[in-house]
Design a protein around this nucleic acid. Sequence first.
DNA 1: TCTATATCACCC
DNA 2: AAACGGGTGATATAGA
Length: 594
Amino acid sequence: MAVLDLVPHAHIVVVDFEFHFGGHASKEEAGRSGERPRPVCMVAKELRTGEVWRLSGDQFGRSPPFPHGDDTLLVAHYASAELGVYRALGWPQPRFVLDTFTEFRARTNGLAQAAGLIDAAAYFGIDAMESLAKKAMVTLILRGPPWSEQEPADFLYYCESDVLTLERIFLAMLPRIDLPHALLRGRFMKAAAAVEWHGIPIDVTTLALLRKHWAGIQDDLIAAIDSDYGVFDGRTFRESRWRDWLIAHGIPWPTLESGRLALDDDTFRQMAKAYPEVSPMRELRSALSEMRLSDLSVGADGRNRTILSAFRAKTARCQPSNTKCIFGPSVWLRGMIKPAEGWGVAYLDFSQQEFAIGAWLSGDEAMQAAYRSGDPYLAFAKQAGLVPADATKKSHGDIRELCKQCVLGTQYGMEARTLALRIGQLELVARRLLRAHHETYPKFWRWADDMVDRAMLGFPLLTVFGWPVHSGRDPNPRSMQNFGCQANGNEMLRLATILGTEAGIEVCALVHDAVLIAAPLDQLDHDIERMRAAMITASRLVIGFELRVDVYVVRYPDRYRDSNGRGDVMWARVMELVAAREAAAARELEVAYG
DNA sequence: TCTATATCACCC
DNA sequence: AAACGGGTGATATAGA
């Protein structure tokens, strides 16, 4: 088969595992278990010879039965799953990985979202197992043992059919695969498997208390405030009752096009200015939001684990489930991140990552100088002549804030009207700020505008390491403008994760421009410095400049807090309510049993 | 009663 | 009540 000549490796092995997470009724339930995978069966096929290996039950040895050295290319669909099973089996990680999920995402990025094995097969006109039948089989496997005598043989048959489908998908894609970049992405999938394997340390005692009292806490919060309004029906806010309350109090309220009330927090904030009696309801609504903990997937070892969904976003960012991963919901809930006894964790993030990427990839010297100054917002104010050269954050805080909103907004393509509303100034002021930005950073704008032009002409946009986005019909110019910063930022994080995990650092989580690592206390400082070095190296390789990396450290017995104090008030308030409810429960016990 | 859509909240 | 990018997910209301 001539198409295989496109791959230099002596062996090409396509592999698929079936696995479960300790036994669950459904795929959804298994996904939130937080446990590590346990192998059920495996089929592998070497494409040059056609040899096939089938393993199940207790047939898994200490290493793969197929070629697995440095002369082998391992092919899998969303490989971090397979590589997680490798870890569970104690098999050595392969050197070269090609992930068909990732390469299918690359090929269709911007044009389609679906990228499962069946979706990819359909795209290439390959007949595969029916989606429903596949789902039923996966559910049965995830339920875990015991199975009937026949079922393990069915699993193996199903697994083999997936491998054959995968082989055909791989061959169909191969002529258009950008192999060096694909191998770099495959290398990241190995790193992703490590991150998924480690998980985030959680204070399971506090989590259990929060889960236990969750509904009660919501009731406490509602009871304290809604008695003056009467708009809650149990724990749900009723728009119609809010309308009644507004009419009764003679308060006019903005509506949406549909005629419904505008109930977003911005509207509440604005209205609270004019009608202070609205304020308590606003606070209650924001306190009640995002308070769901039941799906957080924490394993028996107290680690929060979930599929990272690497390459899910158009910019190749990971998009783990917001309910399963502790970094999804409001920041105050991160108080539940807590290293185990004798351990510490550290959160390392790239400082002003997207600003710096724009500055260096565009070659804009003024923007680079602003980054180097350490305070890009104030630097912009100075460069634009809006404040004197000796201005400080203290002396010109208000103008710095306007400039901050302008700098952040322009990265996303914000225009004058919205910026004006954001900063509470006339549109004229916003227009001046934006013009100043264009005049101060002309090379950045040429670079950004070029990106949009190329996309509008139908060319794909590429990161420095070749992650593409294809402009479909009706492309959003602001999206195309931002792609250069966001997607290259993700390249940087992926590369840092590769370097960090391959150096043996325990990376627990990826948060877009940051990582969380864990280490025993006597090793923590050392690992922080190594991870910082990995991130700095990654930034140099992606944009040719070494970014600043900020570090926030937590040592046992402390718990994670946001470094800017976001969420501290809410955490304290909820913990008070938890304590009160625990105390009440203890009193009840005492009354009951003396 | 169930599903689709709109809206909203949160993350970086 | 928004021409601010990339997302996940919950919920209320409208519609079948």
